[in-house]
Simulated scan of single mutants.
Amino acid sequence: MDESGPVEKVEFAAPPDESPFKHTLGFLAQPTEERPAQLRVSVTNVGDGDHTIQTNNWGLPFPARAGKAIDGDEKLVLSTDGDAEYRDDCWRDYPKTSPRIDTKTLSPDETVSATYALVNGMETAACWPSGKYRFSQRYEVDPEGDGTEYDWWFVVSV
């Protein structure tokens, strides 16, 4: 990771062993005046057959858009729609979610990915306040069958 910017570390959890899905997260770029910090989230079906993954908000692979400071009230936001604003030397946006179910069936080795801008919340006073920010999302696997649920999360350290 390029450590010349405010984001120091990104770490993520593995889904439960029984899940046919593998989640990965890659940090792509520190913020500049021209563009916000960027990261990429992917979900891959590593099972033997087709499997369905479902979330309660629209926007697979990771619909949860706000990461709250573990020891505070500040927020970082994942932005996907290009609405992030650069003001006062800082990229900012409001977290946006769409409360409707998102479901995708993936074949073996099929992946769904998205690149997100990582920015400060509009109401966060400081730009990139130091701390650890946790983003978490609940997933349901094969909801029409046996259906198991799990949470997948990642933490961004600033």
Rank of each mutant, 00 (worst) to 15 (best):
P36F: 06
P36W: 09
P36R: 12
P36L: 08
A37G: 13
A37H: 11
Q38K: 15
Q38W: 08
Q38M: 15
Q38S: 14
R40V: 12
S42R: 14
S42T: 13
S42W: 04
V43R: 09
V43W: 05
V43T: 13
N45M: 08
G47F: 08
G47R: 07
D48S: 12
D48K: 13
D48P: 00
G49M: 05
G49V: 07
D50Q: 11
D50N: 13
D50K: 13
D50V: 02
T52L: 03
T52K: 06
I53K: 02
I53Q: 04
I53V: 14
Q54D: 00
Q54P: 00
Q54F: 01
Q54N: 02
N56I: 05
N56V: 02
N56E: 12
N57I: 03
W58Q: 04
W58T: 03
W58C: 00
P61S: 02
P61N: 03
F62D: 02
P63T: 08
P63I: 04
P63F: 07
P63K: 03
A64Q: 11
R65A: 15
A66R: 04
A66Q: 06
G67E: 05
K68L: 07
K68D: 03
A69Y: 00
A69W: 02
A69Q: 15
I70D: 14
D71H: 09
D71S: 06
G72C: 01
K75V: 14
L76P: 03
L76M: 12
L76D: 01
V77Y: 06
L78C: 02
L78Q: 07
L78D: 02
L78Y: 02
T80N: 06
T80R: 12
D81V: 03
G82H: 05
G82P: 04
D83Q: 12
D83R: 13
E85R: 15
E85N: 08
Y86W: 11
Y86G: 10
R87L: 15
C90P: 09
C90T: 13
W91V: 05
W91F: 03
W91A: 09
Y94D: 10
Y94H: 08
Y94W: 13
P95R: 07
P95I: 07
K96Q: 10
K96C: 02
T97F: 11
T97G: 11
S98A: 10
S98K: 10
P99K: 14
R100S: 15
R100I: 15
I101A: 11
D102F: 04
D102M: 10
